[in-house]
Design a protein around this nucleic acid. Sequence first.
DNA 1: ACCTGAACACCGTTCAAGT
DNA 2: ACCTGAACACCGTTCAAGT
Lengths: 199, 199
Amino acid sequence: MPEATQRPYHHGQLRSALLAAAERSLRAHGEEQLSLRELAREIGVSHAAPRRHFPDRQALLDALAEAGFERLYTRLRAACTEAGDDFLPRLRATVAAYIRFATEDAALLELMFTSKHRPGADRLVVAADPAFDLMYDLIKQGQAAGELVEGDPERVGVVLFATMQGIATLVNGDMVKPELLDGLVDTAVEQFVRGARPA
Amino acid sequence: MPEATQRPYHHGQLRSALLAAAERSLRAHGEEQLSLRELAREIGVSHAAPRRHFPDRQALLDALAEAGFERLYTRLRAACTEAGDDFLPRLRATVAAYIRFATEDAALLELMFTSKHRPGADRLVVAADPAFDLMYDLIKQGQAAGELVEGDPERVGVVLFATMQGIATLVNGDMVKPELLDGLVDTAVEQFVRGARPA
DNA sequence: ACCTGAACACCGTTCAAGT
DNA sequence: ACCTGAACACCGTTCAAGT
């Protein structure tokens, strides 16, 4: 490890520096505006340098999306545990945390979910698993508590996940009237719990 | 109206020709690959010609999205009426038609919904209204038939719309296990109806 | 192993000029 | 009114060459 006072990215840090700069650019200006050359300029390396760490632009975007899923999972887990042990508050908190993540990082969410299956994107689908699994665990808890019907947790969980994802998309696209916005998460959770509770 | 045998796009047809070519390109190669210059080449005009009809690339994409909403509405309406007069079959058919549209035209759907509110995109939000309204009318029918709880149709309708949109996103991103795919729409509809039926 | 510099092919956008 | 042609500034990607 050299002192690296003037050119801190000359050795070993370029990959993480690119990811950090890309994340900022994504949040500030969206995916379309993200330019590899501009990132390289910011960091102070040549425009060809990123190639050693990301074979092309898409590889960088995929890495961002992958990191996004990890952060989403961390956030959901935090919200879930902080909400205590009971099913319903946990569910509410988790859904709310998802929507918060989605609206704060709209461009990132888009990257995470709209990466139509290209060869090599399997890593991304795998990266999404923990977040899904957390949802399924929540469903299982609800079932154990007698609040949700029995049956494959994934079957009902996917629908809940889809609803959250869809709400995020509608909100980010300004397609939900402001007066409905506040109660939207509550309505969704309430409707879900009613729809999936035991007869 | 001239004969226009050799250069059919020289007068008045360029706008619609661009839209048609753009729609094909979008479906075949996605949004990122869509190039104004390439469309102009295909059609046989100079690369600067599109500018008279669409001030920039985004304007063309917005027009595509707008047309997409119109086609979505037409499809939903057709599915709805063909399904007969009863609420539940209508609901099922409409949701299924939405998912069909979404998977057949994944890239278009993305354009339609992920166009984060930029100034000038109000036209798009307005274009989406009929599809939403159709959904709300369906909700109202369900309420009149006593199958759904009373209350603001939009409040419960938005959640349903979000669920459909989210399912489309998950399916298009290959994030739902194949064995769950078939029953997904049924599960979603069933869960919705249970969640929103009168106590 | 990691980065540079020049080069290539392609964009979107602009604008004076043509018809 | 509608289109052309040249020009500008910017990309992503490639590759020989440097350290």
